[in-house]
Design a protein around this nucleic acid. Structure first.
Lengths: 210, 210, 210, 210
DNA sequence: TATGAATGAGCCTTCATTCAT
DNA sequence: TATGAATGAAGGCTCATTCAT
């Protein structure tokens, strides 16, 4: 297969992903038909099936992709805010600070983008953990889990079962954040945040190796 | 309206609820049609719409009902196991013990009843918190939140914002439990449990009033 | 049957008529269900069938009633405008003037009340001619045909087959008026009117007995 | 798209049109389901929606088509009867004669084909005037309006606003003819005709340029 | 007379999927 | 690879009508 063709293929695939995400967040997953997606992506209906098994396959890949992006963006935001220009002579890396910052960042983004929140449902953890299972072709996919391991390595504080700590944190933030943002019950996000942050600290603390 | 009619109506409503839950857990929500439900409940299709707005209305009511039952059952199991016959001279009531016991009980029940887990998705918290919002007619509905307040009253240990503690616990258990049971990733339930229990303790501890 | 009951019955019948007309003009005939009508009229669904055979029966009676009202109103408007207070020493009665005035009046009313126009469709003539056929209980129904005969009697100018003249005029005005108001093609009402009026004169002239 | 496909599509469209017209006139518009139409046309139900927006879209196109045909047929009947073989040395073209002949011809056809009359309702004028508005693809559609302009051009007698004259005539004939044929009230068609014809003459006369 | 719960046929419409081109 | 016309099962839902009360 020539490179030209390959690049055309990638373009189509990306157009399908981009447009379907747009439609899913706009009108909801159920109300988006493959027809819609194909039309918006500028390809024929049959072409869809050359790239994805079905709508659910597509949704899963999008969920992983979008949740991952959330983590990567949050991490980058932390970097920008805490060492904008220089890499050297920075304070010792503080895992708790990073994780808390990131979770707040993610919650804020989700609150300001409810369609995305609804699309992700409570599957925020797919951004870190489903990646492996779903056999997502990494290639150009962002991967926070890899960054997380780096952070841990550079951290002066060490953790027992750090991936479980992360898992618990992400599930807690994903689920409680969803309920809080969508239903504002038993608490809206603004008021829930301090409690959530305290528990994130708790979880990390209980995994610390002293 | 005569009593006869009223009772017949209640019967129909309950038949619809029972049969639809059966079908939802058996074949999944999407794959269950209103035709199926009506047929199984022994009523005409149109009758369905006299009792529920649509399939989603029905699902929400079922979710609340089934999740509530989970809490009530867990609580009853605790009672049976710890003071099976006598009410008097029992040890001082231990909230942490109750909550941890209940969460383990719920997780075990969900692991042994995956269709129920799938049906509830990650909405375990509806069993405690969505009730109010969805304006569910309490009447004969079990209500754990009421029991929880009683427990707190009788507890010698007091808690700050106890409903938030419960909320955080339930969301954490519901979401992490779901991922763990369904995907066994990053950890299956058996191995996740100790971590989860530790965090339940942590959450309660951090709400304790010393 | 006691008078009380009879009056209650009349009330219900009238409520059904009034509310259904309201709904028909608001949402259209097809989109109005008997449920809607009964609900708005404050009676049970089954009650509808005690008063009307079906929705079509109801529509026909309403059509006759509303179209009749249009003629009566137009006639009254003429009277008010041309001999507001005194009956005596008025100019000789001019049939053409009356008819032309009335048709203009009706067209103006229909243009300003399109839902009514749509409801009547092109059945304006039912206001004069379908009454007899449909065996409408006259009682308190307005009846323009009766007035028309009076007018003719008092007119110094006499007409051959005057009911046919009226029929032709009403059908022409009803049909051409409808198309003109609804489609504005080939001409909107404002521009069509002079042509229409000329033909009304023509029709009457050709029925004059010289 | 290959010619083969295009031709197949045209075939399907025509089959749908033909069969639906058949069913509408046989059983009425309301009592004809899209299922019926698809079945009779030999296509799948879903295919219907590839060709028409809905049943109303279909009805409108059929109304235009069938009403147009009525005019074309009437015109051809006139031609056949008045200059069956030779084009040359015919008497000067007489617009009034043509129009009156055509209207009589149309009325006779409608009386002998009441299902068609019922289907067209009082929308005979769509055969001449709605065509433009509904954006009907002319292509192979008959178009009487074009013929009418030709007739006018060749006529020694000239008319002011001839399309309005035609409009008034067609609306009058359509509406009065409908009532007369369907209700025979206030006059059946046989007895109404002379009056109608006289008014057609009147209308044309009043548009003549002397 | 009046009710309104129950019916269930039947409607329109959507849509994932196929396949000949 | 790509197309898009065709499929037809399946779905949700409405509604006129009935009938036991």
């Amino acid at each position: 297969m020539s490179e030209k063709v390959t690049s055309k293929k990638r373009q189509k695939r990306e157009s399908l992903l981009r447009q379907s995400f747009q439609l899913f967040t706009e009108k909801g997953f159920q109300n988006t038909s493959i027809s819609d997606i194909a039309k918006n992506a500028g390809v024929a209906k049959g072409t869809f099936y050359l790239y994805f098994k079905d709508k659910y396959d597509l949704r899963n890949r999008l969920t992983i992709h979008e949740a991952s992006k959330l983590f990567i963006n949050a991490y980058n935001a932390f970097i920008n805010e805490h060492s904008p220009d220089s890499d050297e002579n920075h304070a010792p890396l503080d895992v708790e600070k990073i994780i808390v910052f990131m979770m707040e960042h993610i919650l804020d983004e989700l609150e300001s983008n409810k369609p995305l929140l609804v699309f992700l449902n409570k599957n925020l953890s797919w951004g870190v953990f489903r990646n492996a299972i779903y056999g997502e072709p990494k290639e150009d996919e962002p991967d926070f889990y890899y960054l997380y391991r780096n952070i841990l390595e550079e951290s002066p504080v060490k953790y027992r079962d750090p991936e479980i700590a992360l898992f618990l944190i992400v599930e807690l933030v994903g689920a409680a954040g969803y309920s809080s943002i969508i239903y504002k019950d038993p608490l809206d996000l603004e008021h829930l945040k301090p409690y959530l942050i305290r528990e994130i600290h708790n979880i990390l603390k209980s995994h610390e190796i002293i």
